[in-house]
Design a protein around this nucleic acid. Structure first.
Lengths: 240, 240
DNA sequence: CGCAACATTGAGACCAGTCAAGCAAAGTGG
DNA sequence: CCACTTTGCTTGACTGGTCTCAATGTTGCG
């Protein structure tokens, strides 16, 4: 069993090998990390991380999408953020109660023991730097969502969400995709934006009637008038 | 000029010497950091960090309080978070546009060039670990605020904010303070909670009429019935 | 086919925003 | 010291957007 390509076997065919935080590690350390982790598949609705996760896992999302969920006092679910491929799942360096992270689509993730990653980040300053970058990005996303939800009406919130997905779906950072999939149900959109299912549905209907976009099926969106859609968002977008 | 006490002169009498991230540094590195920084005083309304901050500063808050502010498209100010003593001001390791951070009260901060802190965190893994901890804490706070604002009504938002200040004002983590100061104007509370000034004012009046709390002046609050106040918050609090 | 989950649409109630007026406290200048 | 202004807070009447409740439509799957 020789290794024709450099790098750990686990990382062969990794779709996010370049973008994930692991890329900051030198080969030997990456090998060590890889030996402690393994790839896992998740179906829609599966839990990647539970709040009482006794094993203390941490993961990198390879493909698919996930939601970060909080259950509030009256049992309703609020979505605090989304995780995209190459994103991190679970939190390091905190004793906080933790969070639910649930797969939105069929997903694949590289799962590691939290302690291994924490120890490695102490030994490898470059990894610590990348982790910081990534968490700052999450913080920015969280604050963008906060800005979108606070003080904006339903039209602006839905339009902002659509635009952020259009941006994420495009291969080019400067252009938005004209057509993209929304991997969220209406209920999940509502839980993310702090609205109700009915309001989300009515708002989408209104956008369609006004010619801003078209629904293709229940989860595909075609943007017909990006300019007016951006105007409806009031220049605010959220990257989940 | 001998140094009677160990540690840099700048850190002598530092009120947050134990809690700030600097505490993770060994003496020699702390000395190096201290030489690159200096203490500054800020009056209420002064800007600690501007979004176009060409000098790229970063700071630790020593005393007082500050708000993290975003100005949205129509010019209204939204508050994305608060900074308390020992907290960090400004973001490291990001090219993001940056943020306004404005003093809420007379405040003192230790200001450093961003590059110095970033370089030190590469050289000192323990500092990087502390920075990670601190940013995770900020992320938690941001998500707590998101949970408070999304899908909760005005009563729950105001009650949650009061409770979080009651908690922060208490010297014991397990008990809330019964009386505390709100270093925010009504407009700032509104900008933080995604409400209007009028709604905040009316909600406080309602709480007082119902016997949950009493206003002493415009900025001091006395909690009269913590149990019912917590019930009004629906068990949700935000730590800013 | 028939069920179950999800989505859309409608009617009415209610909470919070808007507009507007009145107060109180702090600062300013004669 | 007092009139005046400024700023921030409170209260009221009204409007409107969003939630609630309810029914119907649609999609996907066993």
């Amino acid at each position: 069993m020789t290794d024709p390509a450099p790098g750990p076997a686990l990382c062969r065919d990794c779709p996010v090998a370049e973008r994930a935080v692991c890329a900051a590690l030198p080969l030997d350390a990456r090998e060590r990390l890889a030996r402690s982790g393994r790839r896992r598949q998740f179906a829609r609705g599966d839990t990647l991380i539970a709040p009482d996760d006794a094993d203390r896992h941490w993961a990198t999302l390879l493909s698919g999408a996930a939601k970060i969920v909080a259950i509030d006092a009256d049992g309703r679910e609020r979505i605090l953020g989304l995780v995209h491929p190459a994103g991190m799942v679970g939190q390091l360096f905190t004793a906080a109660p933790g969070q639910h992270v649930v797969a939105l689509t069929h997903s694949e993730a590289c799962v590691f023991p939290r302690a291994t990653v924490e120890a490695l980040s102490q030994a490898e300053p470059r990894l610590a730097g990348r982790l910081l970058e990534e968490i700052v990005r999450e913080l920015d996303a969280s604050r963008a969502l906060l800005e979108l939800i606070g003080g904006r009406d339903a039209r602006a919130r839905v339009a902002g969400l659509l635009l952020s997905f259009a941006r994420a779906a495009s291969p080019f950072p400067c252009h938005d995709a004209q057509r993209f999939a929304l991997p969220l149900t209406r209920g999940e959109i509502a839980a993310l934006l702090g609205l109700t299912i009915e309001t989300v549905s009515r708002t989408l209907t209104a956008f369609e009637r006004e010619g801003l976009m078209t629904r293709a099926g229940t989860h595909d969106i075609v943007v017909d008038d990006a300019v007016r859609l951006a105007a409806a968002a009031g220049a605010a977008t959220a990257s989940g």
